[in-house]
């Protein structure tokens, strides 16, 4: 039989986990978004300048760098706490 305080404790624990995962969530979304945003920008510049695939590759690379930088910031931040 599940008691009311067990449900309450479960919700409190879930809140704690979700609260702690906020920065990690933002970093992971930033990684994907940076790759997509800069990849698309690179693709559009390539299309405009007829230089395929130079800017696309540069965009993807910079996207990866930005994304991983966001993740590194979270990891270093947690290490220093």
């Amino acid at each position: 039989m599940i008691r009311l305080n067990q449900i309450s404790n479960s919700f409190t624990y879930l809140q704690k986990i979700v609260r702690q995962s906020g920065p990690a969530m933002s970093a992971s979304y930033s990684l994907i978004a940076a790759v997509i945003l800069l990849g698309v920008l690179g693709y559009l510049i390539d299309k405009w300048q007829n230089s395929s695939p130079v800017f696309l590759l540069c965009g993807l690379l910079i996207g990866l760098v930005v994304g991983f930088y966001e993740i590194a910031k979270i990891i270093w931040g947690n290490k220093n706490k």
Binding site: Y29, S30, A33, A34, I36, L37, V66, G67
Partner: peptide
């Protein structure tokens, strides 16, 4: 770039 990536991530997701 990160400054613009964050709202872009919110938009797309």
């Amino acid at each position: 770039i990160s400054l613009f990536v964050r709202p872009f991530a919110l938009t797309m997701r």
